[in-house]
């Protein structure tokens, strides 16, 4: 009975975080992007500086007609948004927010494997949407998604492997337990590679070739409206939360604060995640979209060699310490 209650509580909390944090990131993006462009952003919804803009957007999306194109593969078309969104919920379960067993949805022994594998599934949603829409632009978007997935999964995995090597474990709480402050400079290249590759995987600008609204009209999402489209958008912001959380846990020491154990672990995790989310928004505002070939070039000629170099460095230091 007590176990059931515990599980239910954890699920509710994870679900609440999953629903709230992406909206917070989305609202922050509205406002930060606006101010970086000398604008004010939403000002009306909710009264105070448009805080309820995304709620209003949600209401709008819910009211829209749910259209499935005549030539579409109806089942796949309808399933795609769920496939895009749910993996991020599953990943969130495994991310530790503070020290100890109480601060993680579920301790997964092979945490890194689980997290990266499930995150990869999220991209599948875009592929399904692109293929099932029976639309040339969507298909192009889906193909670009596939190419991007192939190119960027590899550096991401390699960078994560470097951390696993350093910690000697693939469990996320285990990595955090082993974390020392000097890992930060040690793994900095890996962190950058992981973060950039993660951005590309989320199809966030400047790596938003697959959606490229000015070229292929939002790619795989061209034919989507209403709630299903909203789910895709939510998946994007949930992806930001997950990516920033993972980067925090793997490379920035998660709940470790600069003053040692102070009982504020979850604050540190949230703070680091928030700063990273700000950087994600910042990059989006600052840089133009890469061209498709530049995107591939960056992955294969820069990120993968860097990730391999990081692994080599990790190995050398590890051996030297032992």
């Amino acid at each position: 009975m007590n176990d059931a209650l515990d599980v239910a509580l954890r699920i509710v909390i994870v679900f609440a975080v999953f629903m709230v944090l992406p909206l917070v990131v989305g609202q922050t993006e509205h406002k930060v992007m606006a101010h970086m462009q000398g604008r004010l952003g939403p000002m009306y919804a909710g009264g105070f500086h448009g805080w309820a803009q995304l709620v209003a957007d949600g209401v709008k999306f819910a009211q829209k007609e749910d259209i499935v194109p005549a030539g579409a593969d109806r089942k796949v078309f309808r399933l795609a948004p769920a496939v895009a969104l749910l993996p991020y919920l599953l990943v969130l379960v495994a991310i530790p927010i503070g020290p100890g067993e109480g601060a993680v949805g579920q301790v997964v022994d092979a945490g890194i494997f689980f997290v990266l594998a499930v995150m990869g599934v999220g991209v599948l949603g875009s592929l399904m949407a692109g293929w099932a829409s029976a639309n040339k632009f969507s298909l192009l978007g889906g193909l670009r998604t596939a190419a991007q997935l192939l190119a960027y999964e590899l550096p991401m995995l390699l960078a994560a492997a470097s951390v696993a090597m350093a910690a000697g474990t693939v469990s996320l709480p285990g990595i955090l337990d082993a974390f020392e402050w000097w890992w930060l400079p040690w793994q900095i290249i890996g962190a950058l590679v992981f973060f950039v590759a993660g951005l590309a995987e989320l199809q966030r600008p400047p790596f938003d070739m697959p959606v490229a609204d000015s070229e292929i009209i939002f790619g795989a999402y061209t034919e989507y409206t209403g709630l299903r489209f909203a789910l895709f958008l939510l998946a994007e912001y949930a992806g930001i939360v997950v990516l920033c959380g993972l980067t925090t846990v793997l490379f920035l020491g998660g709940w470790h604060g600069p003053l040692g154990a102070d009982g504020l672990g979850w604050v540190w995790t949230l703070l680091k995640t928030g700063i990273l989310a700000f950087v994600v928004i910042w990059l989006r505002v600052s840089y133009p979209r890469l061209r498709e070939d530049q995107l591939q070039k960056l992955a294969w000629t820069t990120l993968i060699p860097l990730a391999l170099a990081q692994i080599a460095l990790t190995g050398i230091v590890k051996v030297a310490i032992n």
């Binding site: 606006a34 101010h35 970086m36 462009q37 000398g38 604008r39 004010l40 910042w282 990059l283 600052s286």
Partner: peptide
């Protein structure tokens, strides 16, 4: 990045 960050701290023109 510096340009966008600086713009964010300035007064908006809206």
């Amino acid at each position: 990045l510096a340009v966008t960050l600086r713009t964010m701290t300035k007064k908006t023109v809206t």
